[in-house]
């Protein structure tokens, strides 16, 4: 029983982290908080992949000349790429947040929506006149 739980505990905690991330993205109106949530979600996915690559009694996949058991190096390569791409997308998202703040003077999603609605209503009433 304990063995069964230990065998999957890593996966489950990672799922909990992912769901905290997705909840932050979906429920919080603040754009920076949304990006932070996206980052947490992303890091949890990385951890899921690396966890799947671990082999019991294995070592880091670096050849030393001695016969050794290595952990799976392919998830490491994938995630190495994903981390760097992740930071690039985070930078793009944050640049968008800065521009939204310049255009609307707020980084709260609902305030941006209210301002948009107000603009549309104003234009429509002007068109009606």
């Amino acid at each position: 029983m304990i063995q069964d739980i230990l065998a999957h505990y890593n996966y489950w905690i990672i799922m909990v982290l992912m769901m905290i991330g997705i909840y932050i993205v979906a429920s919080r109106g603040n754009l920076i908080k949304k990006i932070v949530g996206l980052n947490i979600f992303q890091t949890s996915v990385f951890m899921l992949y690396i966890t799947m690559g671990k082999v019991e009694g294995g070592t880091a996949p670096i050849l030393t000349g001695k016969p050794e058991v290595f952990s799976n190096p392919l998830p490491h390569v994938l995630i190495l790429t994903a981390i760097v791409v992740g930071v690039a997308t985070t930078a793009l998202g944050l640049a968008l947040v800065v521009r939204i703040r310049e255009a609307y003077d707020t980084i709260e999603e609902d305030e941006v929506r209210d301002q948009d609605n107000a603009t549309v209503a104003e234009e429509m009433s002007r068109a009606a006149r």
């Binding site: 890091t43 190495l80 981390i83 760097v84 930071v87």
Partner: peptide, 19 residues
């Protein structure tokens, strides 16, 4: 730290520096 523990030293390095 977790990546180091799971033998992914390159990933740990990148995550600490970049992430």
């Amino acid at each position: 730290a977790l990546f180091t523990n799971l033998d992914a030293v390159d990933v740990a390095f990148t995550e600490a520096a970049v992430g």
